[in-house]
Computed example of a mutant assay.
Amino acid sequence: MTSYTKWMISLVILMITVTVFVIWLIQERFFETTEDLTVHEAEEIIMNLYGGSVESIEEKNDIYYMTVLRNNLAYDFQIDSETGNILQLNKVDGNKLPDMSANVKTIEEIRTLLNGQQKGTIHSISYQDVGEQPQYAVEITEQETLKTLIINAITGEILSEKVKQQNSSATHTVTIISSEEAKQIALSQLIGTVEDVVYEDASDGGYYLVEIDGENQEATFQINAVTGKIISVSNQDDDDDEDSDSEDSRDENDDD
């Protein structure tokens, strides 16, 4: 092999090496693959834009769900984990924040609870401090249906549910009160012990039958499950029963 041939082989090898290196640089510069945001990067995006402090963060279906406190207000964020774009921002209702000292469930606990019970996509969760019963208002969409749930913030119980068919020109709304609400309505009329609560379905939304044993009276309340109005009350006085028993006893003694 002549020196010229060796020189040509070396030149070809050098050219191939340089070409491979250039191709590698181009791929790194222009065709680098994008990776999903980490939790820390998602937090940095929100902190740089809005400030405050991150209270909770959860990733589901390529979306980060984040709750942020800023100036004593709570905000719910939804962030695309691939692009870093903020998909949704909701402020928690009013200036009220959940009082965790009262064993109130966090927004993320409510979200986790509903994910196991409800189908569809959770769009917003808003805290509502209603007297002695703090609540969460939750909006969920499933296909053409929008559901608004009122949830006990301590127990996680669904207190009421409102359903709207969004694909209909005339929107139909059906609201069913909970059995707990039906009991409270009946107890507002007669103080006593609730013996039984039964729901009866009907074409107009159904009704509850609530049986209460009061101090001197037993009554059964029929309550409209949609409006919460008392349809009828059937009662029986304990004193009347005792009087009837006494009269029966006297009659038996007279017969003897």
Rank of each mutant, 00 (worst) to 15 (best):
A202N: 15
E82H: 11
M1V: 14
I176L: 15
H172M: 14
L11F: 10
Q166R: 15
V20Q: 03
V54R: 08
E247N: 01
T121C: 05
T175R: 11
A153C: 07
K6G: 13
E157W: 06
D201P: 14
Y207D: 07
V104T: 05
I16F: 10
E157Y: 06
E247I: 00
N152M: 14
V198F: 09
T148D: 15
Q135E: 13
D255K: 08
T67V: 08
L37N: 02
S53V: 12
Y75V: 08
M100L: 11
E181K: 13
M47E: 11
I191V: 03
V104M: 03
N167K: 09
A42M: 04
K96L: 13
F21V: 02
I125T: 03
L37Q: 02
E58A: 06
I79P: 05
E195P: 00
H123V: 09
T193N: 07
E59N: 10
D238S: 00
E55V: 10
L87K: 14
W24Y: 04
T19Q: 05
E218I: 06
S56G: 11
E144P: 02
A137G: 04
T220N: 08
F21C: 01
T67F: 08
V104Q: 02
D241W: 01
Q184K: 14
E108N: 07
E109M: 03
L25V: 01
V130K: 15
I151L: 04
R111C: 01
N90G: 11
T83W: 09
I154S: 06
E41I: 01
T34L: 04
D245H: 00
E44P: 00
K105I: 07
G52F: 05
V233L: 07
D99W: 06
G156A: 09
I125R: 03
G214L: 00
W7E: 14
I154M: 08
V130M: 12
Y65A: 03
E28G: 03
S178P: 10
Q78E: 15
L187E: 05
S168V: 09
A137W: 10
D241E: 06
D245I: 00
D245T: 00
A42N: 04
T38D: 03
M15Y: 07
G206I: 09
Q128R: 13
G120Y: 08
T2V: 11
L187K: 04
M1I: 14
S234W: 08
I231E: 10
G156L: 09
